[in-house]
Write a protein that binds this DNA or RNA. Structure first.
Length: 427
RNA sequence: GGAGAGGUGGCCGAGCGGUCGAAGGCGGCAGUCUUGAAAACUGCAGAAGUCGAAAGGCUUCCAGGGGUUCGAAUCCCUUCCUCUCCGCCA
């Protein structure tokens, strides 16, 4: 959420930022400006009446103590009370409308974000590892996985439906090894605190991160008399851990990592990546979240990206790091780097991590503040999040990049300690 | 699922419908004292909104929402949460 006062005072800047995202902001911004003006006109009026009402309350109390007649004052007070209630209702309506409108506005892109319309305008900032050359036709992971007996989509469809998968044996073990490998790395080497959060969250939490109210269609909602959704990413519970708190600035930055399953309805994605593990309703992910001061947030974004890159470096998977352009960024983000891993079967780089600084966008929605030095005036923190990494897609990358002509898959050396020293998965 | 007890400032904990943003304690910050620290003493300390150039003023906030009343932390309704006991259960 943007700050209403900021929109009022920096209308042109806001307009330009939103236009770079490819949306026409005039109508929405005009509505917010109008409501904000009306709100600020009404507030002094209502508060003036309340002040009078408080004064007459004191007067009545005093008169009563002295046994004086309070009839006339009380009558005036009664009428004023009605007026206050009526104006208060109007003011609440205006404020509610303003806030609902504000929740629909995406974050503004940071000045260092390239202006562009689509993924084609993203800027590659780094490329590491050389895509391997195969002396045979590289197979897609679903063929390899099914042949190895570690991946089963048909049985998954039987028990759940399309876009689900079952892992068996070494596949299930590989998934678990990746989770442990990443959590160990981030907690031991990168300074994150491990968290095991709920994977069902309420609407307030989802509003805090920006998933609601606008993107409800992407979520799985729990049926029955529950205000609960399955988490689309651990970013939601982790970022909301401190919702409504004022943190001591000396404790920042706070760094959390969590493994959770993630659930996405992927509404509107029909026809994309229908085969294999790329796009599933349920997938595992190790997430990284930071709460920082505004001063340090962009430094922390770079180190967060580096933390995620380290995973790919250690697994010796070829990848590139891409700075998303204004038109390709998520709703809450001010600046996003994607990590894209090389998939031999597709002969292309595919997203495996997305790392964003949302600045105060989520903090304002979730009301997360800090006091500089523990004593200053409360200010909004900056929140960051990134995948470190998506487990399922990492498994895909390993299976495809480490495949051999006979259909077996070599386990990356860094992962072998998590696989009882096993070096290869074969039929 | 059944029965009961609660939710007050960073924490604990008082609070007859009016003078309560809220006693007291702990913790925090600053100072006095001290070579330093501790102790003791003194003082300062919540958040949001709004007006104002500022100083400062005003309004709101005692889990959330609604109601009664001239006036609600205090009375009523409701939702949520916590705790205890019983039942069920990984």
């Amino acid at each position: 959420m943007l700050d209403a006062a900021f929109i009022r005072d920096h209308m042109e800047e806001v307009r330009a930022g939103l236009r770079h995202r490819g949306i026409d902001p005039d109508k929405a911004l005009q509505e917010i400006a109008t409501l904000e003006t009306a709100r600020r006109r009404m507030i002094p009026e209502v508060e003036g009446l309340k002040r009078q009402q408080n004064a007459s309350g004191d007067e009545i109390a005093r008169a009563k103590r002295h046994g004086q007649d309070i009839g006339p004052v009380q009558e005036a007070s009664r009428l004023r009370a009605q007026q206050i209630k009526q104006l208060g209702t109007q003011l609440d309506a205006i404020e509610g409308q303003r806030n609902r409108a504000l929740l629909q506005i995406p974050n503004l892109p940071h000045a260092t974000v390239p202006v562009g319309k689509s993924a084609a305008d993203n800027v590659e900032v780094r490329r590491r590892g050389e895509p391997r050359t195969f002396d045979f036709e590289a197979k897609p992971h679903w063929e390899l996985g099914e042949a190895l007996g570690i991946l089963d989509f048909e049985r998954a469809a039987r028990i759940a439906g399309a876009r689900f998968a079952v892992l068996f044996g070494a596949g299930a073990r590989l998934e678990r090894a990746l989770i442990n490998f990443m959590l160990d790395l981030h907690t031991r080497q990168h300074g994150y605190r491990e968290v095991e959060p709920p994977v069902m969250v309420n609407a307030a939490a989802l509003t805090g991160t920006g998933n609601l109210p606008k993107f409800e269609a992407d979520l799985f909602k729990i049926a029955g008399d529950w205000d609960l959704y399955l988490v689309p990413t651990a970013e939601v519970p982790l970022t909301n851990l401190h919702r409504g708190e004022i943190l001591d600035g000396r404790e920042l930055p706070i760094r959390y990592t969590a493994y959770t399953p993630c659930f996405r309805s992927e509404a509107g994605s029909y026809g994309q990546d229908v085969r294999g593990l790329i796009r599933q309703h349920q997938f595992d992910k190790v997430e990284l979240v930071k709460l920082t001061t505004p001063e340090q947030s962009y430094g922390e974004l770079e180190s967060l990206v580096a933390n995620a890159e380290t995973v790919l470096d250690l697994l010796e998977l070829p990848y590139r790091t891409v700075l998303l352009c204004t038109g390709d960024m998520g709703f809450a983000s001010a600046k996003t780097y994607d990590l894209e891993v090389w998939l031999p079967s597709q002969k292309t780089y595919r997203e495996i991590s997305s790392c964003s600084n949302t600045e105060a966008f989520q903090a304002r929605r979730a009301n997360i503040k800090y006091r500089a030095g523990g004593t200053g005036k409360p200010e909004f923190v900056h929140t960051l999040n990134g995948s470190g990494l998506a487990i399922g897609r990492t498994l895909i990358a390993i299976v495809e990049n480490y495949q051999q002509k006979d259909g077996s898959v070599v386990i990356p050396p860094a992962l072998r300690p998590f696989m009882d020293g096993r070096e290869v998965i074969e039929p």
